[in-house]
Write a protein that binds this DNA or RNA. Structure first.
Length: 564
RNA sequence: UGCCCGAUGGUGUAAUGGCAACACAUCUGGUUUUGGUCCAGACAUUCUAGGUUCGAGUCCUAGUCGGGUAACCA
């Protein structure tokens, strides 16, 4: 349309834009998202999803969902279902859904065509022999002794492979390319291997399965994909991708590679995530500590926040590590706009207001969200006995501590000024109660005599509060780069033991009894929390902390050490 | 040891041969009944050496550093 003005495009969008402008593929744009259903999607996949579906949206094209299910031993329908759910949750809908296994027959026929052209052969070498014959970076390869079998013999053998006459590993079908290529992928790569395994869709129909390289490009081609976007590690596969399609003389999609997402303090390797799940280090793929889409969902992240994150990290060809602070910014930014404010006291400390009448209560009116004028108000009960946050009181407070101290005064949010007179301790010396007085003249939060308080703390009526379990989550790895494992350590030793801290005795506002699974709230001054979608029950509420608020106080404390 | 790819503030990106910019992070200050939000400000950048050009972060050459790569995984 208005090609004159230059928008800031990443290199892939630039390329697609050029192709459209040049009328390549008749100006069509068709992408695909091709996960292998062998695990749950993680936030790295979200980047790819946003790219592929985003490209289709932005260029008026289409995007397919294709399950790359060519390895029956690892794949399962459970993963297929979760992948569909996660993509939809992110807010995308695919134009068509396919499985690589839909193309097994077509691929088989194409393989025969290649055999007939003398471009593929059945090889009897073992894995070890293949490795030895392939040579190395410094060594040229040697041709397999089976490389020169006749077309007839190859046809016969391949058909017998398909018919199940051979055991696993006994034979492969290989492309006849170049055993001296600088690119190892071109040293007669395997196209088919024998696996007597039950496939999640095709059952026992096949015992030969196409390898990734043989399946992927042709699947793209069949679907009319124009731009086949994948991650950097497939860069050296592109010549093979192009070679197969070139031999077959079919529609030729363009493979383009980009750098995968790496986030600090986060483990993204699918293999290791699988290990965390199977080893019981987490409760499942959707454990809120996991960087999976389902984990983030259960943790309280919104699709908007993840899409915003994907947009901000950008698309390039060089490896980089995104600070997890950016992800946190994205979710805070969204929740700040939409999350209703409520009170949740994580670690309650009882306050008795000695000059407030017993058994008497009043309703205080408070806003639901200062960022949203239309959010309305709610009422909360105030009375003689309250709970405040234990960390909002200190006996020996540093100068900069703006909260409650003995003899000091703070504001109870949306209520009155409160002064602490006395600390009650148990026999172990632990503080169990604060005896306080309030100033009835400060109902509006301001003192008629003009005196000021520095701090405002949250509180909840002891009688009305309801019990809740609150799960506090933190980064799963304290090291910025959990892939960088010190000598003598296992990567699992690096798991942050405080990635989950459970607060069993939290108190929350009665209004939360009506909250639905997954609902998000801001617990004022504490952070954003959501109702856990699995464990929360009406009689036993469970909340997950999605993310803390930015906290200048704790930051300052950490910096200044324990002193003063 | 080959081959492929890459390199811009602390971090992530932009600048399409023409004044190096945006965001995050960090730090100041202001506003605030959330130590939140919001507002104002500060800090800080083109890997090196040559070359082409009136002009280079951008193009060329070489080097340095980083990543990938030798499954019958994807």
């Amino acid at each position: 349309m208005n090609e004159s003005e230059h928008k800031s495009l990443d290199f892939i969008r630039q390329r697609v834009s050029d192709d459209v402008a040049n009328g390549k593929n008749d100006g069509r744009v068709h992408t695909r998202f091709p996960p292998e259903p062998n695990g749950y999607l993680h936030i790295g996949h979200a980047k790819s999803i946003c790219l592929n579906f985003g490209l289709a949206e932005e260029f008026g094209g289409k995007c397919n969902l294709r399950f790359d299910d060519t390895n029956p031993e690892k794949e399962d329908t459970e993963f297929v279902d979760s992948i569909r759910e996660d993509i939809r949750w992110l807010g995308f809908e695919w134009d068509a859904e396919f499985f690589a296994s839909d193309y097994f027959e077509k691929l088989y026929l194409w393989a025969i065509e290649l055999i007939k052209q003398g471009k593929a052969y059945v090889c009897d070498q073992t894995v070890e022999e293949v490795r030895e014959y392939r040579g190395g970076w410094d060594k040229p390869g040697k041709n397999s002794p089976y490389r020169d079998r006749t077309v007839e013999e190859n046809l016969d053998l391949f058909s017998r492979m398909k018919n199940g006459e051979f055991a696993d590993g006994e034979k492969t079908l290989r492309a006849k390319i170049d055993m001296n290529s600088d690119n190892m992928n071109l040293r007669d790569p395997a196209m088919y291997r024998i696996r007597h395994a039950t496939h999640h869709r095709t059952g026992d129909q096949w015992c030969i399965y196409p390898n990734y390289d043989w399946a992927h490009g042709q699947s793209d081609s069949i679907e009319g994909i124009t731009h086949s976007v994948c991650t950097l590690e497939f860069e050296q596969h592109r010549p093979l991708y192009d070679w197969y399609i070139g031999q077959l003389e079919v529609h030729h999609p363009q493979q383009i590679e980009f750098a995968k997402l790496v986030i600090s303090n986060t483990m993204m390797s699918k293999r290791k995530l699988t290990e965390l799940v199977s080893g019981g280090f987490v409760e499942g793929w959707d454990d809120p500590r996991m960087p999976t889409i389902s984990g983030f969902r259960r943790r309280g992240f919104t699709p908007e926040s993840i899409r915003s994150f994907a947009k901000r990290v950008g698309i390039t060809k060089h490896n980089s590590t995104t600070d997890i602070a950016l992800l946190n910014l994205c979710i805070r930014e969204h929740l700040n706009r939409v999350a209703p404010r409520v009170t949740g006291v994580l670690d309650p400390l009882k306050v008795v207001i000695e000059n407030y009448p017993e058994d008497e209560f009043e309703m205080r009116v408070t806003g639901i969200n200062p960022e949203d004028e239309n959010a309305g108000t709610r009422e909360v009960p105030f009375g003689r006995e309250l709970y405040i946050e234990r960390s909002d009181f200190m006996e020996d407070a540093p100068k900069k501590f703006f909260r409650l101290t003995v003899g000091g005064e703070v504001r109870l949010r949306n209520a009155f000024f409160l002064k602490c007179n006395e600390v009650v301790k148990d026999e172990k010396g632990e503080i169990v109660e604060l005896r306080c007085t309030y100033d009835p003249e400060t109902s509006g939060g301001k003192a008629p005599d003009g005196r000021k308080v520095k701090g405002t703390i949250h509180w909840i009526s002891a009688k009305h509060a309801i019990d809740a379990e609150v799960r506090l989550y933190d980064v799963m790895f304290e090291n910025e780069n959990p892939a960088d494992v010190p000598d003598g350590k296992d990567w699992k030793d690096l798991i942050n033991p405080n990635a989950l801290v459970v607060m069993q005795n939290a108190k929350v506002e009665p209004i939360l009894a009506d909250a639905n699974a997954g609902d998000s709230f801001q617990f004022v001054r504490n952070g954003y929390f959501c109702v856990d979608s699995k464990d929360s029950q009406p009689e036993k509420l469970v909340f997950n902390r999605t993310v803390t608020l930015k906290d200048a106080w704790s930051k300052q404390q950490k910096k200044g050490g324990k002193g003063s």
